[in-house]
Amino acid sequence: AEALDATLVETRVSRLIIDCNRPLDAPDLVPPVSETTAIPGNAGLSEQQRAARVDLSWRPFHDTIAGIIDARLARGQETRLVSVHSFTPVYKGKSRPWHIGIIHDDDRRLAKPLVAALQRLAGVNVGVNEPYSPA
């Protein structure tokens, strides 16, 4: 973030507790299983316990992002969002060939030059909307 003169917003809670990259209605917002491993602390959570996790991490994360965007737009600043999310090279026994994945929706203004630059790097396999989709 410092090198790019960008604002960094990060969670301080493992995505095994609550995944801030998921919408509130996602069934895996509080994942019951990580790949093939059950997460006992997530089994049988009450609505109150789930809401406490939302209040602990998800809501502050999203409220902070919204506030930053609103302030930048109010100042007329051009704004782009970049999210960094890790993925494993093997998932549920299936190899993933990508070293990095660039996920984008219909607006490719940032993704297109980034993908092109990364594809020029020797030995780097770039996934475009892999291993995840923008949905």
Score class of each variant (00 low, 15 high):
Phe61Glu: 00
Ile69Ser: 06
Ile100Ala: 04
Gly67Ser: 07
Val84Glu: 05
Arg80Tyr: 12
Gly67Gln: 02
Ile100Met: 00
Glu35Gln: 14
Thr64Leu: 00
Gln48Ala: 15
Pro60Asn: 10
Asp63Tyr: 00
Lys94Ile: 13
Pro97Asp: 06
His99Pro: 00
Pro97Asn: 06
Gly67Trp: 01
Thr36Trp: 06
Ala71Leu: 10
Ala66Thr: 12
Arg53Gly: 01
His62Lys: 00
Thr37Ala: 15
Arg53Asn: 02
Pro32Leu: 14
Ile65Glu: 02
Arg53Thr: 00
Pro60Cys: 09
His99Val: 01
Lys92Cys: 02
Ala52Lys: 07
Leu73Val: 09
Ser83Pro: 01
Thr79Pro: 03
Ser86Met: 10
Leu73Met: 07
Lys94His: 15
Gly76Asp: 13
Val54His: 06
Lys94Gly: 08
Val33Asn: 05
Arg50Val: 06
Arg75Ser: 12
His62Glu: 01
Leu73Ser: 08
Trp58Gln: 00
His99Ser: 07
Pro31Glu: 09
Thr37His: 13
Gly76Trp: 11
Thr36Ala: 13
Gly41Ala: 15
Gln49Val: 01
Val54Gly: 02
Pro40Gly: 07
Gln48Leu: 04
Ser86Tyr: 11
Ile39Tyr: 03
Ala52Asp: 13
Thr64Ile: 02
Arg53Cys: 00
Gly93His: 15
His62Asp: 01
His85Arg: 15
Ala38Cys: 07
Thr79Cys: 04
Gln49Ile: 02
Val54Ala: 03
Pro31Ile: 04
Pro89Tyr: 09
Ser83Ile: 04
Ala38Met: 10
Pro40His: 05
Arg75Gln: 13
Arg72Pro: 00
Ala66Ile: 03
Ser95Thr: 13
Gly41Cys: 04
Ser57Glu: 15
Trp58Arg: 00
Gln77Ser: 08
Thr36Asp: 15
Gly41Arg: 12
Phe61Val: 03
Val33Met: 07
Gln77Arg: 12
Trp98Asn: 13
Trp98Ser: 12
Gly44Met: 03
Pro40Met: 07
Lys94Met: 13
Gly67Glu: 05
Gly76Pro: 09
Gln48Cys: 02
Val82Glu: 03
Pro60Trp: 06
Arg96Pro: 07
Ile68His: 08
Ala38Phe: 09
Val84Cys: 14
Pro97Trp: 02
Glu35Arg: 10
Arg72Lys: 14
Ala51Thr: 06
Gly76Thr: 11
Asp55Gly: 12
Glu35Gly: 06
Arg80Asp: 12
Asp55Ile: 05
Thr37Tyr: 08
Asp63Asn: 02
Pro32Val: 09
Ala71Arg: 15
Asp70Val: 03
Ala43Met: 11
Ala74Lys: 09
Ala43Ser: 14
Thr64Asp: 01
Ser86Glu: 12
Ala66Glu: 11
Asp63Pro: 00
Gly76Met: 11
Arg75Leu: 08
Tyr91Trp: 14
Leu73Ile: 07
Leu56Met: 14
Ser95His: 15
Ser57Met: 10
Ala66Gly: 08
His99Glu: 06
Ile65Gly: 01
Val82Tyr: 04
Arg80Cys: 09
Glu47Thr: 05
Glu35Tyr: 11
Arg80Gln: 11
Pro89Ala: 12
Ala74Met: 03
Lys94Asp: 14
His62Val: 02
Gln48Val: 04
Ile39Thr: 11
Tyr91Lys: 09
Ala51Arg: 11
Ala52Leu: 05
Val33Ile: 15
Val33Gln: 09
Ile69Lys: 08
Ala43Cys: 08
Ser95Val: 14
Arg53Tyr: 01
Thr64Ala: 06
Leu45Thr: 00
Asn42Gln: 09
Ser95Trp: 11
Gly67Asn: 05
Lys92Gln: 14
Trp98Lys: 13
Ala52Ser: 10
